[in-house]
Design a protein around this nucleic acid. Sequence first.
RNA 1: GGAGAGUUGGCCGAGUGGUCGAAGGCGCACGCCUGGAAAGUGUGUAUACUCCAAAAGGGUAUCGAGGGUUCGAAUCCCUCACUCUCCGCCA
Length: 425
Amino acid sequence: MLEVNNIRKNKDIAVAGLQKRGIVNAEEILDEIIRLDDERKNTQTQSDKILNELKTASKEIGDLYKSGKAAEANAKKAMVGDLKQESTVLEDKLKSVVIQLEEKLLEVPNVPNEIVPAGKTEDDNIIEQDWTSELPHLPESALPHWDILTKYDIVDFDLGVKIAGSGFPLYKGKGAKLQRALIQFFLDEAIAAGCLEILPPHLVNEDTARGTGQLPDKEGQMYHVTKDNLYLIPTAEVPVTNIFRNEILQEDALPYKLTAYTPCFRREAGSYGSDVKGLNRVHQFDKVEMVVVSKPENSYEILDEMVDHVKQLLEKLNLPYRILRLCAGDLGFTSAITYDFEVYSAAQKKWLEVSSVSNFETFQSNRMKIRYKNTDGKSELVHTLNGSVLALARIFAAILENNQTENSVEIPEILKPYTGFERIN
RNA sequence: GGAGAGUUGGCCGAGUGGUCGAAGGCGCACGCCUGGAAAGUGUGUAUACUCCAAAAGGGUAUCGAGGGUUCGAAUCCCUCACUCUCCGCCA
C-alpha cells in the first residue's frame, strides 16, 4: 500500500512510475486518493470537534448531578441529544470515507524503482546477467526430468494422485533424500550468511494473509481450511514477514535477516502442457525463503547481497543461470524492483524460474505497520525484502536433467556430504 | 469436545459508571548528589490520526477485538479471539 503522504510529496515520481506499469490514468487515480484523504481529514476534524463538545457536556452533567442540580442536568441531557445525532452522522461518514480511501489505495501497485525498465510483458525484461559460458549439450538420448523420475523411481506422481490429487508429487528413496539435502544445504548457506532460521506455522489466519496481500484479491491462489478459517501458506514469506506486523522495532536491531524452509501450497490450476509437466509447476513444493527487514537507506545494499547470495548458490550447484531485471509490466503488484533467476534445464532446453528477489520498500510495511524508531525518536516505516533461496522442485528438476548420464544422475559435489550418495542409479 | 478463571502501558499491578491515558512499583532516559560508582533524589517516559506555515500548544481515539446500554464505560450487557487450570481424546 502506498503512503498517502508520499503520494502528496512525490506525486510526479509516482505518476511516472505507475505509468511505466501501463497505468495510463495514474494521475487521475492519485488525485482521487488525495481528494479522499482531504475529505477524511476534514471529516475527522469536524467529528473530533463534536466529540469534544459531547465530552465536555457529559462532564458538566456529572458535575451538576453532584452538586444536586438535577433539573439543570436533565435539561442539558436533552441538548446533548442533538450533538449525538450529529456525531453519529459524521462518524458514519468518516468510516465510509476511510473505507473508500483504503479500497482505492489497495488497487494501486507499488511504484517501480527508477532503474526498472518500462515494458508490458516478460519479453521486455532485461537480462541483467547472462550465462556466458556454453550451455550444456546433452546427447539426443537425454531425458526430460519427468522421465528420469520414473526411470529411477524417485518421484511418483501416480501415488501423489492416489493420495491427494494431481500436482502433489511423492518423493521416494534417493529422491526424498536429495530433496532433503537441498533444503539442508540452502538453510545452512542462509544461516552462514547471517540469517536466523525460522520454522513457522504452515497455516495462517486471515489477518496474516491480509498482511502480505494474499487477501483480499488473491484468495483463489490459496487453499482455505474453511472450518477453522485458516489458509495454507503459498510461501514462507507470508508467516515470516507477518512476524513483524504491527511492531515498532529498535533501530539497532535492524536489519532482521530471517530464513525459513516451508512447503508451499498453490491452488492455481494452470494450463496443461509442457510448461506444467513434471515438477515444473505443482500444487505443493518446497522452498527456502529469505526475508529481510531493514532501514530504508540500507535496503538496496541488502538487495544486492541477496542477489549475490542466490548467485553463489547456483554456482556452487554448477547450474547454468541467468538473472533478469523484471520490467514494470511484469513486476509483482507489491514490488518496487525484482530480479528473477532462471536456471537452464538442458533436456527441456528451457529456462526455469527458480528464484525471485524483491525489494518492496515501504509497500508491505505500510500495510502491515512495521516501523522502527529512529535516532530522533520518530517512528518510520521499514523496508521489507524477500527472495527465494531457492524453489526446490525446479532446482531438483534441473539437477536431474543437467547431470544425467547414460545410466545415472550424478549428484553435484557440494551436495554429496548432504545426500550421502554420489549418484542416483 | 465439556467445566471454570483470566486478558489493563516496555514489564508487574491497582482500578466495578464521571474528575482515568489510567494509582503504585519495576525498568528506561536525563539531571542533582559523588573523586567515581552504588544508594538517595528530581524530572520525564505509549501509539495513531488530526488542528496550527512550523515550533509551542490543542483536539480525538485506543485498558484483547467488535458491537450495545448510558448524558458519560477500563468498569455494565452481547458476540468473538486468545491464555491458564481441570476433565475427555490424542502424536
